[in-house]
Simulated scan of single mutants.
Amino acid sequence: MELRKKPRFKKSSVKTFSFFLVFSAVVWILVQFSKTYTQVIEIPVSYINTPLDKSISEDRPDHVDLQLQDNGFSIYYYKFFNPRLEVDLSQARENDGKLVYSLQNHLSDIEQQLKIDFENSLIVQEEIVVPFQFKKEKMLKVEPRIEVSYAVGFSADEPIKLQPDSVKVSGPEEIIDSLTSVPTRSIKLNKVNNDLNGQVGLDTSSLGELSFYENTVKYFQEVEKFTEGSAEIAVEVINVPDDLNLAYFPKTVIVYYQVNLQQFESVSSADFRVICNYKDIKKGDDYMIAQIVEKPDFVNNVRLNERRIQFVIKR
């Protein structure tokens, strides 16, 4: 008995069929996407430039509806890539506890952001209404975190000054009430030999819920050439009982200090006072601690060559 052979398709026929099938599908898709459709698409909204004295509600609108009349390619582009609309609240008007942003008055800006033509499209809403609450305002003192290392022979009479030395902030009452100051960012200035004049930002890294009316301050300091001086000063012991015969050594100490060159000649030994307080002696000690209790206001880095003053009580 003769067996029938199964019909075979030629490879070239399969390839041809597949090509025309894919080609037909592509042509169909192109034709469908080339047609004009009308569809409403949700455009996400983000808010910028919120007035510093206001906090916008979490219930604010998160999108606007765009009615788009265009070919399928454009519509699916907006669906998949979903461009975002930025709403500038500094352009909104205030009305009964709400910020009202007119979309119709900002169509040209919206066109640029969304890359659309409003001849064939429109924003369904006329305006965006954003509820808000007023923030509490307060002045906070600015604390400098500026570490200065002066070059040899240079120093400053006055601490670093800030301008402004206080800044206005606004925010939730519970946070505002807990603050009295805000620090600057930490900076280090090394080998300084000229007047300081710069700008530094505020460290608001942990204060994200607050709005700062100023984010930077200026800093100043006069830096001058200094020299070191010294003076021999008699040690004075105070609060010694009248019936006590106290002998101590040394009787004098050397005070070292830094002073502006222009004021060097103005310093004399009479400007300093060094004392030991007998009442501060601890039981069993045979020495007192010398302290500088008077010095000119314009000298700094004052120190003693000897702080321990030995003593004995004579019988």
Rank of each mutant, 00 (worst) to 15 (best):
M1S: 09
L3T: 12
P7E: 02
F9Q: 09
F9E: 08
F9H: 09
S12V: 06
S13A: 12
F20G: 05
S24R: 07
A25G: 09
V26W: 02
V27W: 02
I29H: 01
I29L: 15
F33R: 02
F33L: 15
F33K: 10
S34E: 07
T38G: 09
Q39P: 03
Q39F: 06
I41H: 00
E42K: 13
P44Q: 13
N49A: 03
L52K: 05
D53F: 01
K54A: 00
K54L: 03
K54N: 00
I56A: 08
D59N: 02
D62Q: 07
D65C: 06
L68P: 04
Q69C: 11
S74L: 06
N82V: 06
E86H: 14
V87T: 10
Q91H: 14
A92Y: 01
R93I: 09
D96K: 15
V100N: 01
V100W: 12
Y101L: 03
S102I: 11
S102E: 13
Q113C: 07
Q113W: 03
E119S: 13
N120A: 15
N120L: 11
N120Y: 15
V124S: 05
E126K: 15
Q133I: 15
K136P: 01
L140D: 08
V142L: 04
R145C: 01
R145H: 00
I146E: 06
V148S: 02
V148L: 10
V152D: 13
E158T: 08
S166P: 06
V167S: 06
S170I: 14
S170K: 09
E173W: 12
I176M: 05
V192Q: 12
V192F: 14
D195M: 12
G198K: 12
V200L: 01
G201E: 07
L202E: 04
D203L: 02
S205E: 09
S205R: 13
E209S: 09
L210Y: 08
Y213W: 13
N215A: 04
T216F: 02
V217Q: 08
Y219K: 02
F220R: 11
F220E: 06
Q221A: 09
Q221W: 10
V223A: 06
E228Y: 04
V237L: 15
P241D: 05
D242F: 03
D243C: 10
N245M: 12
Y248I: 13
P250T: 07
K251E: 15
V253Q: 10
I254E: 04
I254Y: 00
Y257F: 10
Q262E: 02
S269W: 07
V274K: 08
I275L: 07
I275C: 11
C276V: 12
I281N: 08
K282H: 09
K283L: 09
I289M: 10
I289W: 07
K295W: 01
P296I: 14
D297S: 14
F298T: 00
V302C: 08
L304R: 07
L304V: 04
N305G: 05
V312K: 15
K314Q: 11
